[in-house]
């Protein structure tokens, strides 16, 4: 489906992609993670043909990446927070109609799919509005409907959950997860949030300073980078006895307990259930392993080897 071979790009004197190579199979869902400025968006833009690499080879569904070529563009949709796919100053519905025409989607299939997506993303009331009158979250829901409507061979999602509230995030994540299971499209998903990627992607490409530093399956990377989750609990009642739980470490400071546990051995839900059965919890905070730490681990040691 996607082949990149030794792709390099220098922009304004800065190497933004360094010798990037990978293959992605049909209907695989791949997370591209990295810190800000690592080159995630640059990589997607290059695959979409918006940026021409200085050297190297790219094929998407057997075609050269060429922006502005209908035959190539029909194979993908690309959602990002900084761009819009909707037509400005016309109703959102008109953009969807036009999307169905442009992607040459079968009318009946598309109508059914649109009805379903409209329900799932709860965008019924926005269909008659123009994109500019929608809020960020409302517009993003419409953008995602637009992207999934033609069900193209490749769907690229660039930081689509950025700045959205919890309920919207949840709605979107649930849909993406279900769509991934159906295996109808190849999905590329960039994020700097590990838990989203863990939920949505079978495979992860970790990119740092324009270089792919890890390429492997999601469970593998989760094992390597940080098995340790940290939970901070405030309780109102005396503390339970933790002895029968496989915790790595815990620390009690008055009514506050900090627990570190390995997610491979102990599920968060299991730990919570245990706590709730035994004491009265006032507050819980959960700290996921963060990406920066993960990248440091992959490089080995604390030093940044670039």
């Amino acid at each position: 489906m996607i082949v990149l071979k030794n792709v390099c790009k220098t922009l304004a004197g800065k190497e933004v992609l360094k010798d990037v190579s990978f293959h992605i199979a049909h209907n695989e869902s791949v997370g591209i993670i990295g810190l800000n400025g690592a080159g995630k968006t640059m990589l997607l833009d290059t695959m979409a043909g918006m940026i021409k690499p200085d050297s190297g080879f790219i094929r998407i569904n057997g075609q050269e990446s060429l922006i502005g070529e209908s035959r190539f563009c029909r194979d993908l949709t690309y959602v990002s927070g900084t761009r819009t796919q909707l037509w400005e100053s016309v109703r959102v519905q008109a953009s969807f109609d036009s999307c169905i025409e442009m992607y040459q989607t079968d009318k009946r299939t598309a109508a059914a799919r649109l009805a379903k997506l409209t329900r799932i993303f709860a965008i019924e009331e926005f269909l008659k509005q123009e994109p500019r009158s929608l809020s960020l979250g409302e517009r993003m829901r419409c953008e995602l409907v637009y992207a999934f409507l033609p069900a193209p061979p490749l769907i690229m999602l660039d930081e689509v959950l950025l700045g959205l509230d919890v309920s919207v995030r949840h709605k979107i994540l649930r849909y993406l997860e279900a769509y991934k299971r159906e295996k109808r499209s190849t999905i590329l998903y960039t994020s700097n949030c590990l838990s989203e990627v863990e939920l949505l992607c079978d495979r992860v490409l970790l990119i740092d300073a324009g270089r792919i530093i890890f390429d492997g399956n999601t469970r593998h990377i989760m094992e390597i980078i940080s098995p340790l989750y940290r939970m901070e609990v405030r309780t109102a009642s005396p503390l339970p006895d933790f002895e029968d739980l496989p915790l790595e470490r815990y620390c009690i400071d008055g009514e506050r307990i900090t627990i570190e546990y390995d997610k491979q051995k102990l599920e968060t839900a299991q730990l919570l259930r245990y706590l709730m059965e035994r004491c009265e919890i006032k507050n819980v905070r959960l700290f996921e392993p963060d990406l920066e730490e993960a990248i440091r681990k992959i490089y080995g040691g604390n030093g940044w080897k670039r």
Partner: peptide, 13 residues
């Protein structure tokens, strides 16, 4: 920069 939005659409600009 919104020209790229246009170019990503599968129609001849």
């Amino acid at each position: 920069g919104s020209i790229t939005n246009e170019l990503l659409k599968p129609v001849s600009f």
